[in-house]
Design a protein around this nucleic acid. Structure first.
Lengths: 212, 212
DNA sequence: TGTACATCAGTGAACGCGCGTTCACTGATGTAC
DNA sequence: TGTACATCAGTGAACGCGCGTTCACTGATGTAC
């Protein structure tokens, strides 16, 4: 990808600048983090003048928003894959999604950080925010439906409402991912085993809490 | 506080600029958020030239770090209060701390956001980071000791290790607080009841998961 | 096939901005004798 | 009590920076006839 992005164009027109900007933005994000993310640097990496992006995105926030939307779609598909690979039991599915959620955050830390810094994707173009919201909603929906399934089968702990339970489950893995990425727990990026172990711990806790 | 901060000085020397900067920083944070937080604006609000803060903090990150440390102390004492007010049962104490944690985040959203944006408090003066870390450690310690207490009494679910359980409990409420503050769950700042209800849901889930 | 023209997608200069930090300075305060 | 002096805690000008955005422009491409 990067080699393509950095390749010199031969023609005046880029051909697929919109996608190139998204790719370059992602590279930049991975390299410099959220705070190093500027429109001008993205343009530089895409090999284009700093004004060119304005033909594809109304403003900086819209570019960020597009990356966020793309990221939520990625997360959603990771969760979907985890869920469908986990068999029939809803708790197994919930657990698999929880692990997949944390792994997604560890695999794409900058993407993840960007996804939950909503102020960065605020744009004058309101459509962008909607795209991201929709993708986020889809991802959450996958979790929600597994919880609902458990409720329908009557295996949810008494007095647990499905919506609240889904939020609680999401919150738990989201919190763990955030704490790990922020370095609040003493876990470095290379200690995947410890992270995974903790994720399993959290997921077990949640599932034990939900199970009848 | 603001009126004091904005009051004109009569003397050349400020008297207590260090604290005034911390207070002004907090006001600014509440008003403009993390991204509007600049050294120059803090100085402006403290009624002092923009170079004056350098006599009290080596750089911008150090000021932020001091506010973060102060905030973790505040959180720690809120947790301590919740814990000791909840009686003898360790699960009651854990639950009370969970609720208090989320309430702290809702009461001090900007402070909370700042606390978990560690890159902002990175300073050339390493002592600052240490202060914040220590205060954070103390806060976590309060939770940890309640979990350890449960373990000692043998009321923890079989196979649960206390350290992992404490991290998991923390992650759960941290995740909920983050999701609410980011607006990822459809809860507005004024809907305290719904937030509180969700917090109780998460806490119940965690405690049910921990209990033997 | 050629031509006129509209539209698309680039360029590069410029604007205005506010930032963090440094510097030489100066007024105020405290201390030693 | 006075005086010399060191130190502390301010000031304001300046530096260099990179940013987001706008603008008039131009080269390339597509389309109608």
């Amino acid at each position: 990808v990067s080699s393509l992005v950095k390749a010199k164009r031969t023609s005046y027109h880029h051909g697929n600048l919109r996608q190139a900007l998204l790719d370059a933005g992602l590279d930049l994000l991975a390299e410099r983090g959220v705070d190093g993310f500027t429109l001008r640097e993205v343009a530089r990496r895409a090999g284009v003048s700093h004004a060119a992006p304005y033909h594809h995105f109304p403003d900086r926030g819209a570019l960020v928003g597009a990356i966020v939307a793309e990221s939520f779609e990625l997360l959603g598909s990771a969760l979907g894959k985890a869920s469908s690979g986990a068999g029939d039991d809803p708790f197994d599915r919930i657990g698999a999604m929880g692990i997949a959620y944390v792994e997604f955050a560890l695999d794409h830390p900058q993407r993840y950080r960007l996804m939950f810094r909503s102020e960065l994707s605020r744009s004058s173009d309101s459509e962008v925010a909607t795209d991201a919201d929709a993708a986020g909603g889809t991802a959450f929906g996958t979790l929600m439906s597994a919880v609902q399934d458990a409720a329908d089968r009557g295996v949810l702990r008494d007095g647990t409402d499905a919506g609240g339970a889904a939020v609680a489950a999401w919150a738990s893995v989201h919190g763990l991912a955030s704490l790990i990425l922020e370095g609040s727990i003493g876990i470095r990026a290379d200690q995947r085993d410890r992270a995974r172990h903790l994720a399993e711990h959290v997921v077990t806790l949640v599932v034990d809490g939900l199970r009848r």
